[in-house]
Structure formats: C-alpha cells, structure tokens
C-alpha cells in the first residue's frame, strides 16, 4: 500500500462549452486550463508546475474552428497549428498559416493551439508577431462576461488576463492584402525562432505593418520604419520598391529592434541578430510586394 499523497492533478474537468469552462474555473480558482498541453505538460513533467486541478479545453467545439464576422475572421482559441496550416486557412490568413506550419514538429502542431501559444506568450511564440502585425484583438470569456482587447495590450501586460478568464477567440481583420511570415531558426528541421518577421502591406490604410518576433520578450513593431517605407510606396501605382529601398527598410527595422548602445560596441551575437532581422525584413517586404 502506498502512503503517497498525490501531487498530480486529481481533478480534471472536461467542459463541452465555454460557459461550462468559465464556470468550472470559477468553481475551482486554483484550476489551470489546458488546451494541447504542449507547453503546460512540459512544465509539469519538468516539475516546474503542479496544478491542483485541470480544466481541459479540448472538447469545446465552439473554439476549435473559425467564423466570419463583419469583415473579420473570428478564430477559436482551440484551433491547432496543424489546422491553421491547411490550405483553406492559408487562403484566409496566409501569414498565420505559415507561422503555424513552422511551429514545431508535426506531433506538436497536431496538439498545440493558437490560444495556448498566446497564453504562453513565449518570446518565440510564432503566432505572436503575425497577430501583432495584423493588429488582431482577443476576446476573453470570464465570470463577468466577455471583453475584447488588442493583442498588444495582452502581450505587453498592459491589460493582462484576469483570474478566471479564458481566451475564447481571436479577431483578425480580413485584409485583401499581401502578408508574409519568415522565421530564421539556424537549422533545416523544426526549431524555435532565432528571429521572425511578420509583415503586412495594407493598401486600404496605406500602411506597411511589420512585427519582429523572438528578439525581445514581446513582438516589436518598428513604427518609424513602417511609416518610412509606406511613404515610399506608390499606393496608386504598381506598389513596387527598388531593391535598395527594401534593403534600407531591413536595416531600419533591424536597428530599431536591436538598437545601438551609446558608447559601446554591440557584441558579435547582437550584430549577427541584427543582420538576421535585416535580411528577414528585407525578404519579407520583397515577397509581400512581389
């Protein structure tokens, strides 16, 4: 007979709707939501986390797909990377599909979800720069009802998730505009980003929006570089740029994300990161305009 007092979660709830899930979290404030488990269970296995109870989100079908709402796509937080990587989704939001296809090996992409990627908010979360460049917003479901906030407010901690809240949906404006996502990993097999760049050319608002992932705790938006390059584009014409302009844009983005330190020489690793960001941004812009 074992005298062992169980440390692992005894209590696993599997709600089948968002409301039930919110109620379950309210009933057990110490419970932790789990979607694909690819981040959470790794932390549990490593002994970093011992959740008292788990609320599994896998059976909530309303957040496993997407729908359209007023020119926007409403993506369920339970969408897996594998699902987002498929062609029908890629036709809708190509940059997010590309990010999803690169988010780890197939086994991980089959389980890992959009919501988990956002909630984990790892610097190398591949969906995050895309959502930032697309200026997505998140819809949180909580005991006091739903609320919607810009993704950047959530990621920067300006307006964090509150206890008892769940990520329910992500709203992404549907743009009939080129968008790209590029990720450098230093290897050919699946790997975490050394740096990534998401870029959107938005003719409706005459904007170029660029977001750089993995180089800082949250995705960075080089706003000045965006405005500068948007000013060079002939929005009413063929919307092409000379190679030199793309190169200059890359340098601009890179210098904004990895700034010079006054009085000190940047270490080689920082210079290399800067070159990587410059190359990615230049390529991303070139491909978006091609």
């Amino acid at each position: 007979m074992s005298t062992y007092a169980r440390q692992a979660a005894e209590n696993v709830t599997l709600p089948s709707s968002l409301d039930e899930a919110v109620a379950a979290l309210a009933a057990m404030p110490s419970a932790v939501p789990v979607a694909g488990g690819t981040d959470l269970m790794a932390a549990v296995n490593a002994g970093l986390l011992r959740p008292a109870a788990l609320v599994g989100l896998g059976r909530i079908s309303e957040i496993r797909g997407w729908q359209y709402a007023d020119g926007a796509a409403l993506l369920g937080a339970g969408l897996t990377h594998a699902r987002m990587g498929r062609p029908d989704f890629a036709a809708l939001i190509p940059a997010l599909a590309t990010a999803a296809r690169s988010a780890g090996p197939p086994q991980i992409r089959n389980a890992g979800t959009l919501g988990g990627n956002i909630a984990s908010a790892a610097p190398t979360g591949d969906a995050l720069p895309v959502l930032a460049a697309l200026e997505a917003s998140v819809i949180l479901a909580g005991p006091d009802g739903d609320r919607e906030l810009p993704i950047s407010h959530l990621l920067t901690g300006m307006d964090p998730m509150r206890p008892g809240e769940l990520l329910a949906f992500v709203r992404i404006p549907l743009l009939h505009a080129p968008q790209t996502f590029l990720k450098a990993t230093g290897r050919t097999g699946p790997g975490r980003a050394i740096a990534s760049v998401a870029l959107v050319v938005d003719p409706a608002r005459r904007q170029v929006r660029c977001s750089v992932g993995a180089v800082a705790p949250v995705p960075l938006r080089p706003l000045e570089a965006e405005q500068w390059v948007a000013g060079l584009i002939d929005w009413d014409g063929d919307r092409t740029l000379a190679d030199e302009a793309c190169t200059a844009f890359g340098e601009y983005v890179a210098a904004a994300c990895i700034p010079d330190q006054p009085g000190v020489e940047l270490p080689p690793a920082a210079l290399q990161l800067r070159r990587t960001v410059a190359a990615l941004s230049r390529r991303a812009l070139g491909r978006a305009l091609a």
Binding site: T98, K183, A184, T188, G191, A279, L280, R283
Partner: peptide, 15 residues
C-alpha cells in the same frame, strides 16, 4: 525546394 532553413523557413534561392 528544400532550402536551408526548412520547409516554411525564410530561405531565398538568390542567397
């Protein structure tokens, strides 16, 4: 093409 950097990587044939 399977370029350095992988299937959906950032590889560019010109580079």
């Amino acid at each position: 093409w399977l370029l350095p950097g992988g299937l959906s990587g950032a590889g560019e044939p010109g580079a």
